[in-house]
Design a protein around this nucleic acid. Structure first.
Length: 140
DNA sequence: GCCAACGTTGGC
DNA sequence: GCCAACGTTGGC
């Protein structure tokens, strides 16, 4: 089981919307590097859901929940260069783990989340998963 | 609201 | 194929 991280602008699609819908099609990814992560996902993989700071004004950027990959990725019908995938809501992570805390830990300064702020979808390294398990007992 | 990073587009 | 101009993302 592989862990990934996917960003969303909470004003566009928030963790609470996702929690109430329970299933969602994760679309709107256009960046080639992010698409590679989407295509690398398999059913059962886990995805940390991250709220970016964009246009919200309130709340800090950070990880707010966990999803499970619920389908293989597939081409976007209108544009086969793009890909979409289904996510199933698993849980919110409260309190959130902020980008500030991730940076302040000093453990993940080589991770794309820290080094490449504009990347929206990426794998999560094993060390980060371990670190998160210590913060949220029972996280699977 | 501003700006840095960086991806994309289009003229040559 | 290069690169300047431009657009977008996301942190602050």
């Amino acid at each position: 089981m592989v862990y990934f991280l996917a960003k969303t602008d909470p004003d566009t699609y928030s963790i609470d919307q996702f929690a109430s819908e329970h299933h969602t099609v994760w679309d709107g990814i256009a960046n080639a590097q992010a698409l590679r992560s989407i295509r690398a996902m398999s059913p059962g993989d886990r995805v940390f859901i991250y709220h970016s700071a964009i246009s919200s004004g309130k709340g800090q950027p950070g990880i707010v929940g966990l999803a499970a990959v619920a389908s293989p990725s597939r081409d976007e019908p209108d544009d086969p260069k793009l890909a979409v995938i289904d996510f199933e809501f698993l849980r919110k992570l409260e309190p959130p783990t902020t980008l500030h805390e991730i940076k302040a830990s000093g453990l993940f300064s080589n991770w794309a989340l820290v080094k490449q702020s504009r990347l929206s979808t990426m794998p999560a390294p094993d060390a980060f998963v371990k670190w998160m398990r210590a913060r949220y007992p029972g996280l699977v």
